[in-house]
């Protein structure tokens, strides 16, 4: 009996802890017009050309980062699983480094290595800097992407599936795209979603590389306005939940799910 009370208490505490600030933010974001609730703050944000520009910039960056991450992580995790199991601790250590090394260190490293007087002056052009930023983002999301994909790969018999496909005449690319990727799609998507969330909110790298991303925009708004930042926070939160919902949908409609329905 007392056990039950404690679990209810924990639940209520959790809801209050996570829900109240959210509720407060939501309520505040609706109070731009004096005396009544309105969507004025949202209208102001959505009509701000700066919002549109920075948000679409970050979305595009996120998509490219996801593609880059998938191209790097999936084959790596696959090879580690298939042939180089002994390397696993080493690779895992490397993928964890971005959690230990602060982004500001990474970005200063980039600036030193790729400045205009270096052998590869990436920071000399907007496109070059975008590419640099994309690499930075890919690094930041590496721990999440790798872990998600690795877990997905462990759930299937990578080695036997690979050999079965090979004996049927498939080459490496075919095995990757037709056999491995479809079977870890959900894992890749959850890694992609985390990457998306990280890129949309990232501030340090974008600010120091001076790119017009959403993170710096959030910061400027937060410092200068009252209601708009609350509206932005709610929007960001909604996007996050939409992503999660999408993952659920994909999992649900995957016809070959091994769990009997």
């Amino acid at each position: 009996m007392s056990k039950k009370i404690w679990s209810w208490l924990a639940l209520v505490f959790g809801i209050l802890y996570f829900g109240l600030p959210l509720l407060g933010t939501l309520e505040f974001s609706l109070k731009m017009r004096r005396g009544v609730y309105s969507l004025d703050a949202y209208a102001a944000v959505l009509n701000d050309p700066q919002f549109r520009a920075t948000f679409s910039y970050s979305v595009i960056m996120a998509l490219f980062t996801i593609v880059l991450g998938v191209i790097i992580v999936v084959p790596t995790a696959y090879w580690v699983q298939l042939k180089y199991r002994r390397l696993r601790p080493f690779i895992e250590f490397i993928t964890l480094l971005p959690l230990v090394i602060p982004p500001i260190v990474v970005v200063f490293g980039y600036i030193r290595l790729y400045n205009t007087s270096s052998w590869l002056p990436l920071t000399g052009s907007a496109m070059g800097t975008n590419i640099l930023l994309m690499f930075g983002y890919a690094t930041l999301s590496l721990p999440y992407m790798y872990r998600a994909v690795d877990t997905g790969l462990r759930a299937i018999d990578v080695r036997t599936l690979t050999e079965a496909a090979e004996s049927l005449g498939a080459n490496w690319l075919t095995i990757m795209t037709r056999v491995i990727m479809p079977n870890v799609l959900v894992a890749i998507l959850s890694g992609a979603f985390l990457t998306f969330a990280i890129v949309i909110g990232e501030f340090v790298m974008a600010a120091l590389l001076n790119r017009p991303a959403f993170g710096p925009y959030l910061q400027i708004m937060g410092a200068n306005r009252a209601y708009e930042p609350a509206a932005l926070a709610v929007i960001a939160f909604a996007i996050t939940w939409a992503c999660m919902g999408l993952i659920q949908l994909v999992t649900r409609f995957q016809k070959f799910s091994r769990v009997a329905r």
């Binding site: 018999d157 036997t160 079977n183 091994r258």
Partner: peptide
Amino acid sequence: KPNQRNIGMVFQAYALFPNM
């Protein structure tokens, strides 16, 4: 290479492609 040998293989663990 295995994919050039024209050999059919059946495994203990079936190894069917789950997505197909």
